[in-house]
Design a protein around this nucleic acid. Structure first.
Lengths: 123, 123
DNA sequence: GGTACTTGTTACTTCAACGATACTGAGTTA
DNA sequence: TAACTCAGTATCGTTGAAGTAACAAGTACC
């Protein structure tokens, strides 16, 4: 087995700027909500039970900044704002799906291991 | 377009217990280091330039807890400890690869969008 | 005797994400 | 005149991950 290449990870590590994290609280879920077309703020908020407007705003702003979603505000009363996936954002659905599939198939095993470990270390 | 299913995400959200995060600082990189066989603490540390021993220890413990790596300590002087992927940990390499591929192909576009956004909002 | 090697530990600090709660503005409805 | 709608802001507090720095233990090497 050859030694590890000391340069195998870029010092300005690409992964550190990745927009979403598997297991991150909200970003991936927001993108999934937009899968089938534009959605409104309140509409996204519903399935993400428990997300506060402040956090959802922050999440959406981050996704917008990274060119993954667009924000369109209509000058109406009451206000209407629509969020939509960009083509770039849509490409992210694929790796997200791979991760969701992994979770689907292996999460029970992971949780079992975790429980067994916790049981070993502290009764 | 049908409305979003309010139940589409489990309240005990599976993704919130996912062991790695795309873009997380270290977990995915550690798993990748173990791809080709068992590695020692210092060996892993080298390509992860900048990781402190405390953080690497914590990362490895978390992966061990989740049943993704095993830790084998040999009673030698100086001490020798080997970390190795479990079969479960090995299955995670696939979604990680999908995410790395995404980053490889689309990161420049994302960074470009980010720069343009930052330029717009604060000159 | 002093230093290095290996795999960590401990104490302290910093920072960003997350969260709870309350509030805003403009018009429309009851 | 009060309540309601939507898309957020404002303020404050909590939490966890990460970072810094120093230290440890046993043996081998100089």
């Amino acid at each position: 087995m050859p030694p590890l290449d000391p340069e195998m990870f870029d010092p300005a590590c690409p992964s550190s700027v990745m927009p979403i994290r598997i297991g991150e609280k909200w970003s991936a879920m927001v993108l999934i909500c937009l899968e089938h077309g534009p959605r409104r703020f309140t509409e996204i908020r519903t399935p993400l039970r428990g997300i506060t407007p402040k956090v959802l705003t922050g999440t959406l702003r981050a996704l917008e900044r990274d060119g993954l979603v667009t924000r369109t505000a209509y000058l109406e009363i009451p206000p209407r704002v629509e969020y939509e996936l960009t083509p770039l954002g849509r490409t992210l659905l694929e790796p997200i799906a791979a991760c969701r599939a992994w979770a689907q198939n292996h999460l029970p095993q992971l949780l079992e291991a975790r429980e067994a470990y916790d049981h070993r270390v502290s009764g």
